[in-house]
Design a protein around this nucleic acid. Structure first.
Lengths: 301, 301
DNA sequence: GATTGTTTGAAACTTGAATTTCAAAAATCT
DNA sequence: AGATTTTTGAAATTCAAGTTTCAAACAATC
């Protein structure tokens, strides 16, 4: 079994390969060896982890330069990961990509039908949405938002249906680095109580994508009226003047039946890491936790 | 023609650009010279036009083989296009990708400059991850997965922490088009009961990204042993032989403290729409609901 | 502090990829 | 058709990328 990708985990025959490191993705191999990696090789491994897939386009010499090490270190790493030589590693990295490779189109031509094309279409749509969403952000507004979330006494995230999961995700991330972050609605409960309780010191982040729910505009209006800052993350077909302090429109439409939330994820991620940076810079928030997160980055389980 | 400027400009207007170091893209150069290209070189050019960007990962020898020509032809083409040598061309191809340029690689040393640059960086990272994730899917395996989910008596989605929200999202989407789709763990409860109850007719979809939880491998092993089909969606540093029927590795790493799940979203979206298509084609699932979804597409609230 | 084992990059070495050469083959022109 | 130019790939050559070696620097152990 050579390729990465969704693979049948056929039990027999794996043992031998696994020992040699075969059948694993580049990253998988790095993972299994990461702990025992010496400084210089680990720096190269880190580089590869940050840019998987890029390996194929870079020479060992370039990787050495970029990681600040020597060519010898690259050779040593590649060997340790179980490849015979750098060239074998490069091939492995390149061939993991089934679609979009010349080899594929030239060899198999017809059999897969248009699966490759469908894939490329999916990618295009998400790329477009992500670009649209992030590129329209304005530095000063975004800064205000991040600042408000960092300084707020309490942060509430509100979302229903699909939006609820996005809100939950964001809540989880923000909660890692500062306290008093709450997800609404809590199971089964109505949100009336919490909304009524909001003050000027609080921030309410509303994730309000399509298939809207009547509660949302009401809650936003109430929160806004109470002086709480309101961030409204929604799709681009949303109304013009919602009762919010800030509105971020997010591209979610595509050709498919369901809306696509990759761009929303991308946006929330960006927001969350911006919050981390800001908190760290201010020396506020859960600094110890942030410290730990940095260390845990290279734990693979 | 001597060392300094091996650029042939037969068109006056291009002189300035080319002299400045070849401001033209790889594709642009091919187009400019295409008509005057001899047979063997044109075949190579065609190959490159189909996969600009991919060129970087291939050697001149491979391009020669793939196009059915000789190495000499590749060298000649590259020269004719105005590059000093194949290596210069390879670099150009690589850097044409907005991501993956040495410039980009080095930019991580400059502590994230202006807002626009940070945005572009975010976009690049997600684009990269999405491409990595989707392009490695294999049509037949993916088909099996979709089919299994459509035909299963019951579908369970399991995920903890961040993965729980992704699982919840997917559950919500799949639940729109077929019944008996369950999210685990249910609030507060342990999963032991449901896992013990799994049969060969069930499918368990495990979302198992980093910061892994001890329950997950246990549950997977139990489910697998009970004969249920198990789809394991995880990051690319996954172990070699998980107890799953299928494993889909998903690119989630980037330069930030938190993992980025845009690619995971993209993958789950693709999976969900594939399920809808399949169900519709089979005339199974909640056909009326699917019908409604189509109509609701243009409702904006 | 001596001993043993690692880790490291510079430099020598090896190998294979890219370039050049060259003569045959194909195309174009007269 | 004959002459001239262009195109072509096999083979020889060149050159750089990747590997190996090795001694110094560093760590760990006794």
């Amino acid at each position: 079994m050579t390729s990465a990708g969704p693979r049948r985990n056929d039990q027999a025959g794996l043992a031998a390969e696994a020992a040699a490191g075969g059948g694993l993705s580049f990253e998988g191999r790095i993972r299994t060896h990461y702990r025992g990696l010496p400084e210089s090789e680990r720096r190269i491994a880190d580089l590869i982890l940050e840019f998987p897939g890029e390996v194929a386009a870079y020479s060992a010499t370039e990787l050495a330069k970029l990681s600040g090490g020597s060519k010898a270190a690259v050779t040593r790493l590649v060997r340790r990961l179980g490849f015979a030589n750098f060239d074998e590693a490069r091939r492995a990295a390149r061939d993991a990509q089934t679609w979009g490779s010349p080899l594929y189109l030239l060899s198999k031509k017809a059999p897969s039908g248009n699966f490759g094309a469908r894939i490329e279409e999916q990618i295009d749509q998400d790329v477009r949405n992500i670009s649209l969403t992030l590129e329209q952000l304005q530095a000063d507004v975004f800064d205000d938002i991040v600042d408000a979330i960092c300084e707020a006494r309490r942060v509430f995230l509100l979302g229903y249906r699909n939006s609820h999961y996005l809100a939950g995700y964001a809540r989880g991330q923000i909660n890692q680095v500062r306290g008093d972050v709450y997800l609404l609605p809590t199971a089964g409960e109505t949100i009336a109580e919490e909304i009524a309780d909001l003050t000027v010191d609080d921030v309410l982040i509303v994730i309000g994508f399509r298939r809207r729910v009547a509660e949302v505009p009401r809650a936003m209006a109430a929160a806004h009226a109470a002086g709480a800052k309101v961030l409204y993350v929604t799709d681009r077909s949303a109304e013009a003047a919602p009762p919010a302090t800030w509105t971020i429109p997010c591209a979610v439409r595509g050709k498919d039946l369901f809306d696509r939330y990759a761009a929303a994820m991308s946006l929330l991620h960006f927001l969350c890491v911006a919050i981390v940076d800001r908190l760290a810079a201010k020396g506020r928030g859960r600094l110890q936790r942030i410290e730990n997160l940095h260390e845990e980055l290279h734990d693979f389980d």
